[in-house]
Simulated scan of single mutants.
Amino acid sequence: MRTEGRGAPDADAPWNEIVPGLWMGGHHYRDATGARAAAVPDARFDLVLSLYERAGHGPDPGVEHHCTVIPDDPLTPAQIQVVLDMAERAAHAVRGGRQVLVRCHSGYNRSGLVVAHALTLLGHDAADAIFLVRYRRSRWALNNRTFEEYLTAGLDVAHLLTGLEEQPPAAT
């Protein structure tokens, strides 16, 4: 469910705080020695939202965890609805003072889409949200141009437009 070939290197950290209480990460990263390491969320997080799943990558028992796998490709209306729901859950938890980690495979695109939309729900405009995700996580974040376009248009609008694409043509 991951698009290969965008040339993004593994992140230098398992996760990064984008704004207070809202973290973004992946399932692996490069440690200080340059070796690939598993990113396993621990009890520092109250809520972990995963858009990719891999056995042995946590989170720790007792951490609230919601996982819905979506592709790092153009999304269906149902998949965009998952993103909308996850972003709302993240924003609500951050407003409540909880520590939230949103993660995907590498911690760049799917998690970036959810985190950026959560930032819009927390009062940022789309351009600022995209900037914050890239500045705080990695310049490689949101390298999926379709996801950036969803955010720029508005995820609610993207949800409606992708739904129109699935409608059969009207009979004449």
Rank of each mutant, 00 (worst) to 15 (best):
G5L: 03
D10V: 01
A11H: 02
A11V: 00
W15I: 05
E17H: 13
E17S: 13
E17L: 14
I18V: 12
V19P: 08
G21V: 08
G21N: 04
G21K: 03
L22I: 06
W23R: 15
G26H: 11
H27N: 10
A35Y: 10
R36G: 04
A38L: 09
A39D: 04
V40M: 06
D42I: 01
R44D: 11
D46G: 15
S50W: 00
G56D: 15
G62E: 08
P71K: 03
P71N: 02
A78N: 08
Q79I: 06
Q81I: 01
Q81N: 03
V82G: 00
L84Q: 04
M86K: 05
A87S: 14
R89L: 13
R95W: 08
G96W: 06
V102P: 02
R103I: 05
H105Q: 11
G107M: 06
Y108W: 03
R110T: 01
A116Y: 02
D125P: 12
A126K: 06
I130L: 07
R136G: 00
R145N: 07
T146H: 08
E148T: 14
L161R: 14
T162G: 03
G163C: 10
L164C: 10
E165K: 14
Q167C: 14
A170W: 15
T172N: 10
T172R: 15
